[in-house]
Amino acid sequence: MFFLRLKFMTIDGVSHGASNSPRLGRRVTAARLQAGLFGFWTALVFAFLYIPIILLVVFSFNSSRLNIRWEGFSTRWYGELFGNKVLIDAFQNSLSVAIATTILATLLGTVGAWMLYRYKFPYQRALGLLIFIPMVMPEVLMGVSLLVLFVQFLHLPLGFLTLTIAHTTFCFPFVLVGVQARLQGLDPFLEEAAMDLGATPLQAFWKVIVPYLMPAIVSGALMSFTLSLDEYIVSVFTTGAQSQTLPLKVYGMAKVGLNPQLNALSSIFILVTFLFAFGSYFFSRNKKT
C-alpha cells in the first residue's frame, strides 16, 4: 500500500533510538531535566484548570441553595435534576447543536484550509482576512445581524437550523486557523508522491493528508464543540423556543442564585466524559501492547 510507505517516510518519525555521541550522558541529563520541569509545570497547569471544577463538584453535594458556602452533604440536587425536564431538554439541545456545529465547522475549516493551501485562488489574502471577521466581531453584533438575515432575508424559522448556522459561523475559523498552522512546513512531495503511486487527488487527500492533519482536526473539533456548548449572546438572538440551549436557561438564573442542579448536571457530564476518555485510552493502549 502506497500510503503505508509514505507514512513511514515522513509522518511521525518516532525513533527513540539513543544517539552515539560522546557527550551523551550530560545531554541526556539536561534533556531529562527539561522533560521533568515541563512535566511538573504541566501538572501545575492541570491543577489550575481543575480547581474550579473540583469546587463545582463539591458544591453539587451542598445542601444549601446558594452556591456560596458549604452547609452540609446532600444528594438532593441530583434527585431534583432527574425530575427537571426543562434543564435536561436544554442540555440535550445544547449537545445536539454542539455536535452538528462541530461536524460542519470541522468540514468547512479543514477542507477550506487545505484548498487555500494547495491552490492559489485570486484575492486569496482578502479571503484569509475574511475568515477572522467572525472571530473578532462582538457577539451581539453577530447575533443581531444574523437574526435580521435569517428572519427578514432568508425567511428561516428560528430554531435548530439557524442556531447551528450561527454557531458554525464563529466556530469554523478556529478549525481553519489550526489546520493552516499544521499545514505550514508540510512536505509538498507527500501529496505528489501519493499521486505518483496512483492515488487520485481525493484519495491522496483522504489517505495521506487527512491522517497527517488529524491532530489539528481533532483540536479544531474540540474547540468548536466547547465554543458552541457555552455560547449565550449569539444564541439568544438566533434560536427559537424549540431549541433553547442550556446557557439560555442558566443566564438570568444568577438573580435567584445558580441552581445547584446545574452543578449536578455538570458533574455527571464530566464523569461520563472521563469514563469515555479513560475507556478509549485503555482500549488504545491494550491494542498497542
Binding site: S266, I270, A277, Y281
Partner: peptide, 18 residues
Amino acid sequence: GLLLMLVMVPFWTSFLIR
C-alpha cells in the same frame, strides 16, 4: 488524545458556574 481531552473537559461545564 487523553491529555488533550483533559485540557478541554473543564470547559464543558457552564461558564457561569465555573
